[in-house]
Design a binder for these strands. Structure first.
Lengths: 149, 149
DNA sequence: CTTGTTAAAATGTATATACAAGTAACCTTG
DNA sequence: CAAGGTTACTTGTATATACATTTTAACAAG
């Protein structure tokens, strides 16, 4: 631990590392939304899936995962829980492998009910990340998607 | 799901939500570092803890958690695993409740060995998030810390 | 039509994460 | 110094996350 080279290196990582900061912000900001959504029995990860399904109507797991940069297995478990809660339902499909899903009436209603909590959390998040946060995040997502394809 | 108000709302969340983007970026960027660190048997979450301990010398769990916006229970489990691997060791303390820890020689060496992988991942992360990413993240962290105190 | 390949998703396993509750040590105060 | 409160962490539990493997179905070649 007294090695000077190691110390320099450690300090460099500490002052420059992107992922440390990104992860800390993710935890803090996710907590803001989770706190706001908790009274509804909804988590931010689940809200994201409801939104994704709401936008496209018929959601294909692989597509949702590509959009959210989420592993299929992670989505699989969450969809399972959300089906059990009656928020999502699987749509029959010609391809026997596919498991496309959509919002149920209950899931749609929950999303509507969550709007005020979302707005409140969104405001707080914006005040912490700064006014350009959405710009920054959108640009980053575009680059990420360009790099992934 | 056919309710027009709900549809409008859903689209608004989809196009504006900060946390969806932050979480997706966090997953994608964490993966870049985890992939780079995997050959060393080290994860990004663990690297962060090694760095935190390396910077302060004697790390107090509560301080590390405050700095990383991490729950104490999360840190507790990870420190346990890292002690088992011989990367961290607990320092005796006058206060019987405290469990301050520091890097072992092995932990310090691992951190040094991880530097090239970190650099590579850091480059890729910067190319995705953009040149101003560190500025943005630093400013956000400052605001977050100001808001938390 | 069977056999190898690809594709879509589910399942096994380990770590990450946080909330709630518990434990043990310290501190205050009467 | 004993009772009550605070502090520092740990443990119980549930969800989040990803990698590796498995399962099932579609497809393609012979």
């Amino acid at each position: 631990m007294k090695d000077a080279k190691t110390t320099r290196l450690t300090k460099r990582i500490a002052t420059e590392c992107i992922v440390v900061r990104l992860r800390a912000l993710n935890r803090a900001v996710s907590k803001i939304y989770d706190d706001a959504l908790r009274p509804l029995g909804l988590r931010v990860s689940q809200m994201n899936i409801l939104v994704a399904a709401g936008v496209v109507g018929e959601a294909r797991p692989a597509d949702v995962c590509a959009a959210l940069h989420l592993d299929l297995s992670t989505l699989s478990r969450n969809v399972e829980r959300m089906k059990a809660k009656g928020w999502l339902e699987v749509i029959p499909d010609d391809d026997g492998r596919a498991q496309p899903f959509r919002l149920t009436r209950k899931g749609s209603a929950l999303l509507s009910d969550a709007a005020p909590a979302w707005s409140k959390a969104q405001c707080r998040a914006k005040s912490i990340l700064g006014g350009q946060s959405l710009d920054f995040l959108d640009r980053a997502m575009k680059r990420l998607n360009a790099a992934s394809s």
